[in-house]
Design a protein around this nucleic acid. Sequence first.
RNA 1: GGCGACGUCGCCAAGCGGUAAGGCAGAGGUCUGCAAAACCUUUAUCAUCGGUUCGAUUCCGAUCGUCGCCUCCA
Length: 545
Amino acid sequence: MPVNISDVMSGKKIELIPRDPGKIGIYVCGVTVYDRCHIGHLRSMLSFDSIIRHLEYRGYIVNYVRNFTDIDDKILNRAEEIIEGENGDWRKHERYLTYTENEWNQRLDDDRKIREINKSSGNPLALDVSDYFISQFEADISPYGMRAPDVQPRVSTHMDDIIDLIRKIIANGFGYESGGDVYFDVEAYHSETGNYGVLSRRDYSQLREGARVSPGDLKKNGVDFALWKAARAGEVSWDSPWGKGRPGWHIECSAMSCNYLGTSFDIHGGGKDLIFPHHENEIAQSEAGYREKFARNWMHNGFVTVDGVKMSKSLGNFLSLDDAAQLAQPETWRFLVLSVHYSSPIDFSRTRKNAEGEIIRGSVDVAAERVQYFYQTIARVNELLENIEIMSDVPSIKPEIAGRLVEKFNNAMDDDINTAVAITYLGEAAKAINELASMKKKEVRKIGEESYYFTLSELRRELMICASVLGIFQRNPNEFLEEMKNFEIKRRGLTHNEIQSVIDLRKEAKDNRNFNKADELRDSLLEKGIMIKDMPGFTTWDIRF
RNA sequence: GGCGACGUCGCCAAGCGGUAAGGCAGAGGUCUGCAAAACCUUUAUCAUCGGUUCGAUUCCGAUCGUCGCCUCCA
């Protein structure tokens, strides 16, 4: 069965037909490295990770390109702010109004480190800023186990490609130089192709009316955008036919994607917020310069929302990857992302009480609990199957799922990478495993041990195949569960010793048949998210989300 | 204001023309000193109103509501 994807350009779900049979070239807009990343970036990368993993699982040779925009206005601003120093006027800027104390501490700490690096690097400060945040980015995302891009091009090392593309655009009559800047002539492009605004479903004439040309503007037209910006005094710059300067935003993605994937390639991806103007402008530039259809398919991931509202810096409701690492383990984040279709928004929430005082489980806590459930299930089946010889010529006792799991999973994933549905099939398999695992010996003998163990083994085999495509449940289950316990008690401000001492006190109470006291002690831990479990002959505990 | 998306059980979330997956929470059960885990059973006609169709949650139109983009953003 072919892989179908929702193409944003056509607005339809279509069969993915690669330009070169068996190969997929995909370009995903990466990050602009002027600051630390947030969970919106993480969601985007994890979403595309699942897309790429599935394509590779389906046998495609995937060429994955994800850029770093390391030259940009925001990076230059950051460099200027660092030069101004910790007490500069920049701190009064609107965008810093919502900064918390922690955010300020981190911000100033980063600035200090960059300043230190710059003292001995001999580089322009702006490039040290981007270098620093690229390292930070790599450190922040490494725990998530994502399929690394084949190429991670940077703007600063692709100036020749960018300048070359701008020359082509001008030569073709779609760009003009103005006072050291170069602009894209949207009017010329649209009047020839009628194509401007097609991806974002915007009406060109309205866009044109809406865009004002302010006095002193070097543009012919309000909708025109910069391909090249002349350097201001002191700024890092590159030589070009139009004088010293740097690329405008958008052109780098056109030049780098086409450089690595060809001027017409299979999939272009990124966050939904990039559709306009970034991707619209990329299309215009690329097609104006290379005179060929740019990306053949467009895929965009949805936002992360917090309590239903888009995460944004101005609202002060964004979570950095540092926050993410404090809140939940990498696999929980991955699971949360996979449990929603990539194009839908993910509402991030913590467990809280509603107006009626009822407990509403937060999405992160629910995800963590499910991850725990799956690992416990895998640990359980591993234990059951240890030293068991599996017969293969026996009937399955779970025919609706064992032997069909991979097929169902594939169908869901082939249907626009529907990880949300795919994951529910993993849930069916885990449930079937637990059902079998809960059976008494007598029941097992009744249905036949050979079928019983064969079915368990099949369920585990298929579960692990699917999980590996999704990039989850690859750890040793017992090690993972131990790590999860440590992570969660730390987050709850508890230690193993504290928990053990409550358990000891409770055992004493139980031995004295003082069950009220024993229950009180148990409930005291439960309030802190620790569940005591009485096992045959001993007592243990587990995390409760 | 323009454009776009969405509105499915208390909460989250699939569904893409044939009479509503799954998870969480709730209720009942097996188990247990009581619990917990695990498993079993159980809870919806899909914002509203029209239209197309043999048949619509799925297509079209209108209304209400929510959100996003239109300035930097994954």
